[in-house]
Design a binder for these strands. Structure first.
Length: 445
RNA sequence: GUGGCUGUAGUCAAGCGGUUAAGACAAUGGAUUGUGAUUCCAUCAUGCGGGGGUUCGAAUCCCCUCAGUCACCCCA
């Protein structure tokens, strides 16, 4: 016996989950549901429809669309029992592309779709970045780029507003891939092979001192004049850029239209031209954007997205340009936390039924059923403890009232209700009328 | 994948080589068997993230490992 116990102790399992994953206890899940309900409501209000796909795909689907390093380092891949090489989805876009390509001819345009898939990436976790996360994906295709670009940013703004954010708490930084490309090739006259490195550097510029930036520029063999132009570029307004680019400034003019319309519409300045926003290196071809939390303790990117020329390229069907973005659930939860927007949510029970003894089980179950059939959320007692204890426990469940039938009530064919907020108590006849009457009072409480 | 910091109960923590690991809050049971408060009493880590090692003796020192966090990397 003693040996057995020791053995059991030694082989105890760890309660720690896998690194970079989260447990959602009911209170966490409640918050997540609250946020997701808001998201669903906002996107449906724009006419977007929810879609979903499998959590695993053939590895080659990702290999075709993502960079080699990402596929090698950050993909959870494995072989199934039939030796097929699969991967857990690290993002939704390839699945979206596959789904759209498969039915491209029959889908009515414009296509407005969204999804909140759970994805996994093998990364080293830190605040705001886990291995398992949900990522809201919103995309629109088949319309006019100007209108689509405005709408997609608007949905992002409305999502944040729906969880209580004000326009002062975040900013939408926008750029256009065409602007930076024209500038680098025509004004800086940078060699093609240096462009990725320059983009990476500009992306990091915000975090660097001016000196560090200069040193880094010299490392990639930019001359004094080129560095000065770059520095000037990064601090330019959209109006300056239009002048600098001259006859090549069409993309800048287009971008300015979007900024002006969005700011006019929202009566704010939350949309800002930010030449340092890059969003990766391939893939995006038009407007790119990121939404940032302005709170100093969580100055992070919440949403990121942009316009692509052709979502379905690898599938060999006709081109389909569109725009979309992704937003991590971790990001929005952190945003709400840092801006004090996290609501205190209670369990949703309306009523708890109380029992007095082992003999009133059936009576209690009858009341419970009667209440439930009216659509009331009601908890039946599963232990008989002291009356006061049962009231306390009802309070914790978020109930507005406790309901019971003791000897007094049974004799007079009544049921009793104690309202927890006011401590007032009343009785109702134990028949249909009485239950309906109580139901009305509960709704209005 | 690289480097730094951290890890004692549900939570916040004291302890810094020496007998049974402080304290607070929370929780549970009771004083009080049909009424939520307060008060009082009791219970609540054979164990210090996990595994080894050094030592007469380890939460404390060493090694490995797991996890969190920050900075890189990356950010589809």
């Amino acid at each position: 016996m003693v040996n057995d116990n020791q053995k059991i102790k030694k082989t105890n399992l760890s309660t720690q989950g896998y690194r970079g994953t989260r447990d959602f206890y009911p209170e966490d899940q409640r918050l997540k549901n609250y946020v997701y309900t808001k998201i669903h409501t906002v996107l449906k209000s724009f006419g977007y429809e929810e879609y979903n796909g499998p959590i695993v795909e053939h590895l080659e689907l990702y290999a075709a669309k993502s960079s080699e390093e990402i596929v090698r380092e950050q993909l959870y891949s494995f072989k199934d029992k039939g030796d097929r090489v699969l991967a857990i989805r690290p993002e939704m876009t390839p699945t979206l592309a596959r789904m759209v390509a498969a039915k491209q001819r029959e889908l009515p345009r414009p296509i407005r779709w969204y999804s909140i898939p759970t994805c996994m990436r093998f990364e080293r976790p830190q605040r705001g970045r886990l291995r398992e996360f949900d990522q809201l994906n919103v995309d629109i295709f088949g319309g006019n780029p100007l209108d689509e670009d405005i709408e997609i940013i608007l949905t992002a703004i409305e999502v944040l507003k729906s969880v209580g954010a004000t326009l002062e708490q975040f900013e939408v930084k926008v750029n256009h891939r065409g602007i930076i490309n024209s500038f680098l090739s025509l004004n800086i006259k940078a060699p093609k092979e240096l462009i990725p490195q320059i983009l990476r550097l500009l992306d990091k510029k915000e975090k660097m001192s001016s000196e560090a930036f200069q040193t880094e520029c010299k490392k990639i063999e930019l001359n004094e004049k080129q560095i000065n132009q770059l520095e000037k570029f990064i601090h330019s307004s959209i109006e300056d850029i239009i002048i600098i680019l001259g006859e090549n400034g069409n993309d800048a003019i287009e971008l300015k239209k979007r900024i002006d319309i969005l700011n006019e519409l929202t009566q704010s300045n939350c949309v800002k031209f930010s030449p340092e926003i890059m969003r990766g290196f391939d893939y995006y071809t038009g407007m790119v954007f990121e939404v940032f939390d302005k709170h100093p303790e969580n100055n992070r990117s919440l949403f990121g997205g942009g316009r692509y020329d052709n979502l379905v390229g690898a599938f060999g069907t006709e081109e389909l340009p569109g725009i979309g973005y992704g937003m991590g659930d971790v990001a929005i939860l952190n945003f709400m936390e840092s801006n004090n927007l996290t609501p205190k949510l209670k369990k949703e029970t309306d009523v708890c039924v109380i029992r007095f003894s082992e003999n009133d089980r059936l009576e209690a179950l009858k009341i419970t059923s009667n209440l439930r059939s009216l659509g009331i959320k009601v908890e039946a007692p599963v232990v008989v403890s002291k009356f006061g204890k049962q009231i306390q426990s009802a309070e914790k469940s978020g109930a507005k009232a406790v309901v019971f039938r003791g000897n007094e009530e049974l004799q007079n064919n009544l049921f009793a209700v104690k309202w927890l907020a006011t401590a007032e108590q009343e009785t109702f006849p134990n028949k249909a009328d009485g239950y309906l009457n109580f139901f009305e009072k509960l709704k209005n409480s």
